[in-house]
Design a binder for these strands. Structure first.
Length: 574
RNA sequence: CGGGGCGUAGCUCAGUUUGGCUAGAGCGCUACCUUGGGGUGGUAGAGGCCGCUGGUUCAAGUCCAGUCGCUCCGACCA
């Protein structure tokens, strides 16, 4: 492709709407444009990257025994009503009606529709297992689309669904997908980690998320360097209660004045104690019901765990008025002692505290020598706290690392969650009718594109991994008005084309510097420069985008040499 | 959904506080000259429903009300 014909509208300045680096660079380098909030147009370069990603995904899905199909985007309400999710999905679902007033939605996910088709067509154990996938636009009317492609309302996803006879078959399908996913993200050149995850609204019992490690990750994960333990922090178990408390004699409870001392840090400084001596009490509203959560002062509460334990849909900190009404004191002075009328839920560490500090439920006062069991009794004790970096791994005891990640894929074992309500059954060898056992396996394709940019860039622009770059090579004659340079560059261009290299020929009448800057912004992996000096030497300058150093290679046999270099570089992405 | 910010040229943004002539700059774009290995320098030009609707006023980009959109923080999130 000649750049004089290639449509790449680059921007010198960053549009004000972009916050994260992938969004900024994909806009500036001419890969995407926003149409409305959370909905993007993929320009030619962006589409090429998507095509590369999709191709890698297809190859690995097919290798694992998957078969591609295409499911409808516009889906009838009836099948969603059958599964019960027409109501559950709420406002996140794009809904529409046809001219007859029939209700439809734009598919946010495709469990229902695939189960619908399979239930009609699959009847016998002989037809199982079945692995079906598609790469398709999905629609979720996010409350808050943001971060460009990372949280969009229209996005591209690969979703594969597995249909097995039993749990054993499902485990095998799940394993296949786990391995396929590892290969896919490896081939895309991503630094990633598979972590244990919650299965969320999709349902099911067992799940892994594939996290691309990145500075802007929306998710936080913990992982062990010594063993393979890795989990989303939402579910990472804090199951190691440290018994590092000193065996003290319980002292009589005592109220102390702590004017204007509200935060853990303030109270500690004021009373001269360590934060792990405090009991932090937080009032939450869980589906409209007030509850108190107790946690050691030096710990962070994990709201996800609390919500899961309570089994509530909505959970948020109670507002000041409610706090005052229930405890008689403003936030900062709440404590479990004498707190009546609402349930007390304590973290596992709380019962181990002796002579602790807690709010007195009276403005400006705290209690000293509070002893759980003596001064208050929690209604329930369970794991409520956020795991921190450095804590021992629950498997091997080595210190855990913490990292941020972008969820680029997730795999679920659905079991019969959809096959039962939707009546997707088969007849086994004994003539018995059984529900099909399902799994589902997502990859956010467009999000993966953004995740790659988050990982692979520098201050000048994108640095595409060779496997997913829109083009592999750019040829840059430093001046096309120098006839010899132009001819040499153009000949090289044709040679590379003939060798099947994806190459761009920058034939525009622009300054060399401008073309360099633009090539760096776009992120072509390999750049060849034909200039005045090298021309007389019979050489060409060759530079990898991911390396600092430029090398000079003889013009003679260069195309073959480049082809070899590319083949070798591709070895990294296998 | 709660809270904050912003809508003026393709992009980045002045101008709005204190209403007043023909609405500005830089970048980008067009033409020409210059330059030619890291967004070269210059000359000339094109480009605006000042988000939209209504109101106040002799007069509104500027004040008021409503509305739409974008964005940030939080909540939420297969």
């Amino acid at each position: 492709m000649r750049t004089s014909e290639l449509w790449v509208p680059t921007l010198r300045e960053t549009p004000a709407e972009a916050e994260v680096v992938s969004h900024k660079l994909l806009l500036r380098a001419g890969f995407i444009r926003k149409t409305v909030a959370g909905i993007y147009t993929y320009l030619p370069l962006g589409r090429r990257v998507l095509a590369k990603l999709e191709q890698i995904i297809r190859e690995e899905m097919d290798r694992a025994g998957g078969q591609e199909l295409v499911l409808p985007i516009v889906q009838p309400a009836e099948i969603w009503q059958e599964s019960g999710r027409w109501e559950v999905y709420g406002e996140e679902m794009f809904r529409l009606q046809d001219r007859h007033g029939r209700h439809f939605c734009l598919g946010p996910t495709h469990e229902e529709i695939i189960t619908f088709i399979v239930r009609n067509e699959v009847n016998s154990y002989k037809q199982l297992p079945l692995l079906l996938y598609q790469i398709q636009n999905k629609y979720r009317d996010e409350r808050r689309p943001r971060f460009g492609l990372l949280r969009a309302r229209e996005f591209i996803m690969k979703d594969l669904y597995s249909f097995d006879r039993d749990q054993k078959g499902l485990k095998e399908s799940y394993q296949k997908m786990y391995q396929a996913y590892s290969r896919i993200f490896g081939r895309c050149g991503l630094k990633f980690r598979a972590v244990q995850a919650d299965s969320g609204a999709i349902g099911g019992d067992y799940s892994h998320e594939f996290m691309a490690l990145a500075a802007v990750g929306e998710a936080v994960i913990v992982y062990c360097r010594q063993c393979d333990y890795a989990a989303n922090i939402e579910i990472a178990a804090a199951n190691t209660v440290e018994h590092d408390f000193v065996a003290e004699t319980m002292l009589p409870i005592k109220e102390v004045s702590t004017p204007e001392q509200k935060t853990v840090a303030e109270v500690c400084a004021f009373l001269g104690v360590r934060p792990d001596k405090l009991i932090k009490t937080m009032l939450y509203e869980a589906d409209g019901q007030l509850i108190a959560a107790l946690i050691r002062g030096d710990r962070e509460l994990n709201e996800f765990k609390l919500q899961k334990q309570l089994g509530c849909r909505e959970l948020y900190l109670a507002d000041q008025d409610k706090v005052k009404m229930i405890t008689g004191a403003p936030a900062g002075y709440i404590g479990p002692v004498g707190l009546k009328g609402i349930p007390l839920y304590a973290d596992l560490e709380v019962p181990y505290l002796v002579n602790a500090i807690a709010g007195a439920n009276r403005e400006g006062y705290h209690l000293q020598n509070v002893n759980p069991g003596r001064d208050f009794i929690p209604d329930a004790v369970f794991d409520l706290r956020q795991v921190e970096a450095g804590e021992p791994c629950p498997h091997c005891g080595s210190p855990l690392e913490k990292a941020e990640g972008i969820e680029v894929g997730q795999i679920f074992q659905l079991g019969t969650k959809y096959s039962e309500p939707l009546g997707a059954t088969y007849t086994d060898e004994q003539g018995q009718e059984r529900p099909i056992v399902m799994g589902c396996y997502d990859i956010g394709v467009s999000r993966t594109m953004a995740a790659a940019v988050e990982q692979c860039h520098d201050e000048r622009g994108i640095i595409w991994p060779l496997s997913i770059a829109p083009y592999q090579v750019v040829i840059n004659p430093s001046s096309i008005r120098e006839h010899e340079q132009y001819r040499t560059a153009e000949t090289l261009y044709h040679e590379l084309l003939n060798l099947g290299v994806e190459v761009v020929f920058d034939d525009r009448d622009e300054r060399a510097g401008m073309k360099f800057v633009e090539a760096d912004l776009i992120g072509y992996p390999l750049r060849l420069t034909v200039g005045k000096r090298t021309l007389v030497q019979g050489t060409v300058d060759v530079k990898w985008r991911h390396e600092q150093q430029e090398t000079t290679l003889p013009r003679e046999g260069l195309a073959e040499r480049i082809k070899e270099m590319l083949t070798m570089e591709m070895e990294k992405y296998r």
